[in-house]
């Protein structure tokens, strides 16, 4: 089992959308894929068409389900997604590690002929989850957008967050989202980031601003199902292929 954590460098970077569509792109490459939502906003499922009023999910009244079968849903093309579940109050912070340990066990029981790939939508504010993922995940993708606020966020990231998330076997990449090649500011910041960051730290493909992405969410589909010709699909497919190489699961 390979865990890929998708995490935003700041709010609104597009983490959930990217986790959903990358999982879908990976599934289209015939891997067994699970999309797992750890955000209490519970919005990952919406990309796969689950009705918004449906409360089912991993957590029920603050407790983790006993059997994954109660929380797992499958899309038409065989992707499995685990919604966070509707909760009334934040779960008890003290026991998050225990919950995650239990979840990991449940996931390990999941049988699949090939290596299972789990995309995790990671909330921004939970340091406990981040710590746990640091020791368990294989790849962490940090999503950011080429905007002025990326700069202070990166400074904070490199000074504070970066030392905390180092662990043997965990690799980090930054993924640029919502690039607007027709706008000078967006282009310049993207160029600047590329120049200043270690080139090995950037995912070579970045995601262009594309109105298809929010529209797909509005109709509760992945962008691939929404508009096959959208540029975003080309990029998600390219990143999925790139991830395949990084994870050494090329088919």
């Amino acid at each position: 089992m390979k865990l890929i954590a998708v995490k935003g460098l700041f709010g609104g970077a597009g983490t959930t959308t990217i986790a959903a569509n990358l999982a879908n792109a990976m599934r289209r490459r015939k891997h067994p894929v699970i999309a797992l939502d750890l955000c209490a906003t519970n919005s990952l499922r919406l990309h796969f068409g689950m009705p918004i009023g449906d409360p089912r999910g991993l957590f029920r009244s603050g407790r983790l389900v006993d059997d994954l079968r109660e929380a797992a849903f499958e899309t038409d093309n065989g992707l499995i997604y685990l919604p966070h579940g509707e909760i009334d109050e934040q779960p008890d912070r003290t026991d998050i590690e225990g919950i995650l340990g239990g979840l990991y066990e449940l996931l390990q029981r999941f049988e699949s002929p090939q290596e299972l790939i789990v995309f995790i939508d990671v909330p921004n504010s939970e340091s406990t989850i981040l710590n746990w993922l640091t020791t368990h995940a294989e790849i962490m993708l940090h999503v950011l957008t080429p905007e002025p606020r990326a700069y202070p966020a990166l400074r904070y990231f490199s000074r504070i967050t970066w030392p905390q998330i180092q662990h043997q076997g965990l690799r980090h990449w930054l993924l640029l989202n919502q690039c607007a090649p027709h706008l000078e500011l967006s282009r310049d910041i993207a160029d600047l980031l590329r120049r200043e960051l270690d080139p090995h730290l950037l995912v070579p493909t970045f995601i262009q601003r594309d109105q298809h992405i929010p529209e797909a969410l509005a109709t509760q589909q992945t962008t691939f199902d929404f508009t096959i010709g959208a540029q975003a699909n080309v990029e998600f497919a390219a990143i999925a292929e790139w991830l395949e190489e990084r994870l050494e699961v090329k088919q």
Binding site: Q208, D210, Q211, T227, G229, Q231
Partner: peptide, 14 residues
Amino acid sequence: RPISIMTASEHSYA
């Protein structure tokens, strides 16, 4: 050569 097109409504197409 692959490129993309962005429409006035900011829809990007491959």
